[in-house]
Design a protein around this nucleic acid. Structure first.
Length: 465
DNA sequence: TTTTGAGTTGTTCGA
DNA sequence: GTCGAACAACTCAAA
């Protein structure tokens, strides 16, 4: 067996517990050199601004946890495969371990790196640190990937079983000398000039924050998840998505803790489904999974896109969601669907534009889930919504925010409007508008599109595919 | 090979 | 207000 330290390359697995790569690194007592590489070279998709904010805090948390056990997180910047190979040489490492990624570009890079390391006489091993079940282990009877969620999940469940997450390694041996590390602050991941992250204060990135959130969710919300997840004003959702995205918590840990809710587990199932899609398809952020959509003539509506992204569409349900997104880096899932549907269907704007906006603004932006869910709403994805499913922002709002509390919170100019009109302020009688101190068209926009006309235009366009 | 049952999240219209 | 049908057939997965 080769000697020297083991290089533990952290990627989207920024945790110590239930991390198979880290356990393998620690297993035989050799010194461990933990590493994270910030790769800004073109190639695998670069994280968006909100996720970089998150990464900054998550790396700080991971670094502190490692130091508490006498270890250290080495930070390097550059082309990842090159940096890893160089640091392996620099430290005399005999082995490199990491958790697998599933997008084709990263898979190709990692495969090449593994071959290169082995050619140099090093051991290189990758592990499953991010999924309940890996794509190549689950196939239909015909040997193809599942394209429909329900049979996919029915087949996946027995294969997953009841996982038993592993604890963190008890100790990590330190090398004789630590290699040089960048300073996290020098990476400039926290936004400056302006610092737009003031609304992010409710988040606690890092493994401890993820575990605390999971416990609280299981104690307070899991019993009523199926209903609570549909009420944005109550926020009975788990909010675990950004923690899962960076692997601060493993899906095995989340799955094991939530056996009381099939509904929640099936949401983890959709995360798996999207990762399997990511693995099978060349580039789900750019290419329609259903190629019939390649001929769709999307509208080039700059004003519409601008109104949508800034929460100025005049549809309170959509605007509340888009403003929550801008403020917190998050949007409740119920509202995401309506906001996405509005852009794609009522405005007939290419889903990729919306996907890119979410990619940059969501703290949970994920290479599998973000494009997968956008394609699902557009109807171009796998097991996607039928074309005639056009979310109506007014009826959705009335159904899932009957008191209007969610809208009041995020669209304060409507706060004094009675619940009866809050999802459709243009229907309020003049007296009600005056009583709410609201001058429509000045304080808050009139709808930028007539809902009925927009819907019919979308149905016609989608039908013609 | 053929057949069969089923398919995340909706809206509108008419009875 | 409530309810069922229509929306558009199509594809998937498994028997």
């Amino acid at each position: 067996m080769s000697q020297g330290p083991v290089l533990m390359w952290f990627r989207r697995d920024l945790r110590l517990a239930d991390n198979p790569a880290l356990l393998a690194a620690a297993a035989d007592g050799r010194p461990v050199v933990p590493l994270f590489v910030l790769d800004e070279t073109p190639g695998p998709r670069a994280p968006g601004a909100a996720t970089l904010w998150w990464l900054d805090k998550s790396l700080a948390a991971l670094g502190a946890s490692l130091e508490a056990m006498g270890s250290k997180l080495i930070l390097r910047r550059g082309e990842a495969a090159k940096v890893v190979a160089e640091l392996a040489a620099e430290t005399g490492a005999g082995k490199v371990v990491w958790s697998r990624a599933y997008d084709p570009a990263t898979v190709a890079r990692d495969t090449a790196l593994k071959a290169e390391l082995k050619a140099r006489g090093l051991e290189a091993e990758s592990f499953n640190g991010s999924l309940l079940i890996e794509p190549w282990t689950l196939k239909t009877g015909g040997g193809t990937p599942y394209r429909v969620f329900t049979p996919f999940w029915r087949a996946a469940r027995p294969a997953i079983g009841e996982p038993e997450p592993e604890p963190a390694p008890e100790r990590l041996a330190a090398p004789d000398a630590w290699p040089r590390s960048d300073r996290l602050a020098d990476w400039g991941l926290h936004p400056r000039r302006p610092d737009w992250s003031g609304g992010f204060s409710g988040w606690r990135p890092g493994e401890a924050g993820a575990q605390a959130l999971l416990s609280r969710f299981v104690d307070d919300h899991l019993d009523h998840y199926a209903l609570g997840r549909d009420r944005p004003a109550m926020d009975g959702s788990s909010r675990l998505s950004p923690h899962l995205s960076w692997g601060e918590i493993s899906p095995r840990q989340a799955y094991a803790a939530t056996g009381a809710s099939e509904k929640f587990r099936s949401e983890l199932g959709w995360r798996e489904f999207n990762h399997h899609l990511l693995f099978d398809q060349p580039d789900i952020a750019a290419v329609n999974v259903d190629h019939r959509f390649d001929t769709m003539e999307w509208r080039a509506d700059e004003a519409g896109f601008e109104a949508w992204s800034r929460g100025r569409t005049g549809l309170p349900w959509v605007d509340a969601g888009m403003r929550q997104l801008w403020s917190e880096g998050f949007m409740h899932n119920r509202v995401r669907m309506a906001a996405a549907s509005f852009l794609i269907k009522h405005l007939l704007i290419d889903w990729r534009r919306g996907e890119r906006w979410f990619w940059d603004t969501l703290v949970d932006a994920d290479p599998a889930n973000n494009p997968g869910n956008w394609q699902w709403v557009a109807g171009s994805g796998r097991d996607a919504a039928p074309f005639f499913r056009v979310f109506n922002p007014v009826s959705q709002g009335e159904r899932f925010d009957p008191e209007g509390d969610y809208v009041r919170r995020w669209v304060p100019e409507l706060a004094r409007l009675p619940a009866k009109y809050i999802h459709a302020p243009w229907t309020a009688p003049p007296l009600a508008l005056a009583g709410a101190g609201l001058n429509l068209g000045r304080d808050y926009p009139l709808p930028i599109v007539d809902l009925s006309e927009g819907r019919n235009r979308a149905l016609a366009a989608f039908r013609s595919l």
